[in-house]
Simulated scan of single mutants.
Amino acid sequence: MLAKRIQPMFFQARRLYVELMFQVMGRALQAVSEIDETVQQEANALPEGFLFEMMVMPDGARLIVEHTGNGRFRYLGDSAPRAVDLSIQFKHIAHAFLVLSFQEKTSVAFANDRMLVDGDISRAIRMTRILNRLEAFILPKLIAKRAVKEYPENIHLPEKLLNAARIYLKVATNFVETVKA
């Protein structure tokens, strides 16, 4: 009896967690593209106006970012002004939760057929490298090693702490600006 009441709350909490993580990731992608040269170099290979989407199928939570040029991304929220160029789609909310709660690496989720890529695979790999770099900065090393395929050896503690603080500050500022608007 108790399980029947708790289960819907669990599903709702999982859905809310995924939605919140997409909002944080979108804003963090914008922030890391403003402060990290490696991310900027990766993003510069993408065309200006390139739209990237990560979503839960069929109509679940999503994040959309646009490459605005000079290696910078802009978080657009959950609606695109036009058709997206690249979409990474989780087949189920449970699959998204596994990846976004760092229980499963993105590469493992893809290998286990939990995700689809709609668009150019080379661009998907580029965006995955950008997301991995972001996670390496904003997550504790122990958790980041579980989340990314290979933890970057060239990120040292002072750089990690400084960039993480800058990213979190920009994310928090973006949340506050969104609330004020």
Rank of each mutant, 00 (worst) to 15 (best):
L157H: 05
G49E: 06
M54Y: 03
A96K: 09
L162N: 12
R5V: 00
A31S: 04
P8K: 06
L169I: 05
Q89P: 04
Q41P: 00
D59T: 07
P58G: 03
Q23D: 15
L46E: 00
V108I: 03
V18T: 13
F50T: 04
V84K: 07
A181H: 13
R166Q: 15
K105A: 05
T38K: 15
V56P: 11
H92A: 12
P81S: 05
S101K: 09
I6D: 05
T106I: 08
R27L: 13
A3R: 09
N70A: 12
Y151S: 04
E37S: 04
G26M: 01
S107Q: 01
H156L: 13
M54S: 06
S122P: 01
L76E: 08
E34T: 01
G60Q: 12
F22S: 01
I125Y: 11
V108P: 00
V179Y: 11
V179E: 10
R114Y: 12
P152Y: 00
D36A: 06
Q30H: 03
Y75N: 07
N163I: 12
K149V: 01
Q23H: 14
D113G: 04
K4R: 12
A164K: 07
M127E: 14
S79Q: 15
A164F: 00
A31F: 01
K91C: 07
H156N: 11
G71F: 05
L20Q: 11
L169C: 07
D78T: 11
Y17T: 00
A109Q: 09
V171C: 12
D78Y: 12
M1I: 12
E66N: 02
F73A: 01
Q30W: 05
I6G: 02
L76Q: 09
F137W: 02
